[in-house]
Simulated assay, not measured.
Amino acid sequence: MIAPIFAVCAASPAVTALLGVGPTRLYPHGEAPDGTAKPYAVWQVVSGSPINYVNGVPDTDRYGLQVDVYAETASSADAVVVALRRAIAQRAYITGFGIDTRDEDTHNYRKGFDVAWLVSQ
């Protein structure tokens, strides 16, 4: 099992208003097609572990995710981050804020945050 980040975000009207439908522009890291319209977001698993018990087999896994938003304007990036955070926070924990920068070459904005997601097996 893996964290259901896409399903949760794609079910949010606030997210799809900004990232579209068919496709919703939320991709696993490295899988956004070349030329994807902005804004879009990517996610990746950066850590994970089972929640172990002394007497028994783990029945829950913890995934640490990193979510990054790419946009042409800072306000657009902010809006997507807010929508994603609100959708994700209904099912997981926002644990930190990551990158907040503008690319020197493309002049696009990148903003990110971290998530801890508990997934029952």
Rank of each mutant, 00 (worst) to 15 (best):
Y70L: 10
R25G: 00
T16N: 15
T24L: 03
V81W: 03
Y70I: 07
D34Q: 08
G98S: 11
P23W: 04
K111L: 09
S120Q: 14
V42P: 00
S76I: 00
T24R: 06
A17E: 15
V82D: 14
Y63S: 02
V69H: 10
N108M: 09
G56K: 06
A17F: 05
D59P: 01
V15C: 02
V67A: 01
R85Y: 00
R102P: 03
N55I: 02
P4G: 02
A3H: 02
A14Y: 08
P13V: 00
E31L: 10
G56Y: 07
A41H: 04
L19P: 11
P50D: 10
T24V: 08
V42M: 10
R110D: 06
S12H: 07
A92S: 14
P58S: 12
K111V: 04
P58K: 05
Y53N: 04
A77E: 03
D103Q: 10
V8A: 09
P58H: 06
D100L: 13
T16I: 14
D34Y: 06
S12W: 02
A10P: 01
I2K: 15
A87Y: 00
L26E: 02
G48Y: 11
I94N: 11
W117C: 05
Y63F: 15
A17R: 12
N55S: 08
S12P: 08
V45I: 07
V46W: 03
N55C: 03
G30Y: 12
V82M: 08
L118M: 13
G35W: 05
P13W: 02
P39Q: 11
V69E: 09
G56Q: 06
V21A: 11
